[in-house]
């Protein structure tokens, strides 16, 4: 039976602003299915974003939402979570917003292990501002500011998050639509900082500059290059060249920040 997305969408907001074939719509649907699976209460959930194409997502969801300054979504989300620890806090943003302009906020949210779920839509590019290259643009690929190919090495967001201290890190792609909601739901249930990187297609700013003839071709590339984490563990570094490792990449238990902070408050009050 058709999933009732309307129950979680703000009425009258569709059609959304994203380009034809943009993967952000697929991520939005996955996010709504995950929120449904976790039975999230609309009044006790906050969806926070910064600036960018992916950051337009909270405008469509019928929850508490916050559209903040560029790259500062994690900082605002930290504020919400500390002030109201009983709330479920989700952050949605793109690669440029999350790990370039907001890179500092991102790593420190990971370091603190604050209980929030960060859905990072990595479409390899700054889509909204005209297709400038981001730290996630693959080496050699073209963007409006790297017309002869990008010379910069690429960020591995999952490794960055693990290194910074996030306690749940997962990766999937816009092709793996059912995995998106499973991983986000898993991230929401995890106590601590959860980072879910969704590799996304940007047909307008990235695809047409990099010889993808259609959005379907971009989707099929995700299908061909994705390798589940369990299979990847048995593969050599050479075999994994150019592959995308998907699934849960890291999970550990570590003290959560709000609880640690409460202990400080209790000590200061002499409890």
């Amino acid at each position: 039976m058709a999933f009732n997305y309307e129950q979680y969408l703000r009425p009258g907001k569709l059609p959304h602003i994203w380009c034809p074939g943009c993967g952000h719509g697929i991520v939005l649907k996955g996010l709504l299915r995950a929120m449904d699976a976790c039975h999230l209460d609309k009044d006790r959930t906050a969806v926070v974003s910064g600036i960018g194409c992916a950051s337009r997502l909270p405008g469509y969801v019928d929850f508490n939402t916050l559209h903040t300054a560029h790259g500062r979504a994690a900082a605002f989300a930290t504020g919400i979570k500390l002030a109201r620890p009983e709330m479920t806090v989700l952050v949605v943003g793109g690669d440029g917003d999350g790990v370039a302009i907001g890179g500092n906020h991102f790593i420190h949210a990971c370091r603190r292990n604050i209980d929030m779920t960060y859905v990072l839509c990595n479409n390899y590019i700054y889509g909204m501002t005209g297709g400038q290259f981001s730290p996630c643009t693959p080496m050699g690929d073209k963007a409006s500011t790297t017309p002869y190919g990008n010379p910069d090495p690429t960020f591995d967001i999952a490794k960055l998050a693990i290194g910074a201290g996030a306690t749940f890190v997962a990766r999937t792609t816009a092709f793996h639509a059912t995995q998106i909601d499973k991983l986000i739901a898993e991230g929401i249930r995890h106590k601590g900082m959860s980072v879910i990187e969704v590799l996304d297609d940007c047909p307008t700013a990235f695809g047409r500059r990099n010889k993808f003839r259609s959005v379907v071709e971009m989707m099929k590339r995700f299908k061909e290059t994705a390798v589940p984490a369990a299979t990847a563990a048995k593969m050599s570094a050479e075999e994994l060249q150019g592959k995308i490792v998907t699934g849960i990449l890291h999970r550990e238990e570590r003290p959560e920040y709000c609880e640690q902070y409460q202990q400080v408050i209790d000590r200061a009050r002499g409890a």
């Binding site: 058709a2 997305y5 059609p15 034809p20 943009c22 993967g23 697929i26 639509a177």
Partner: peptide
């Protein structure tokens, strides 16, 4: 520029179209 149903009798209800549509434009009942 519009998706249309041309062979409704062939539908097996796999929901792939509804699942993958980025625009909330398809529903399978």
């Amino acid at each position: 520029f519009l998706a249309t149903v041309v062979r409704p009798e062939a539908c097996i209800g796999c929901m792939q179209c509804e699942l993958r549509c980025p625009d909330f434009a398809i529903k399978v009942y």
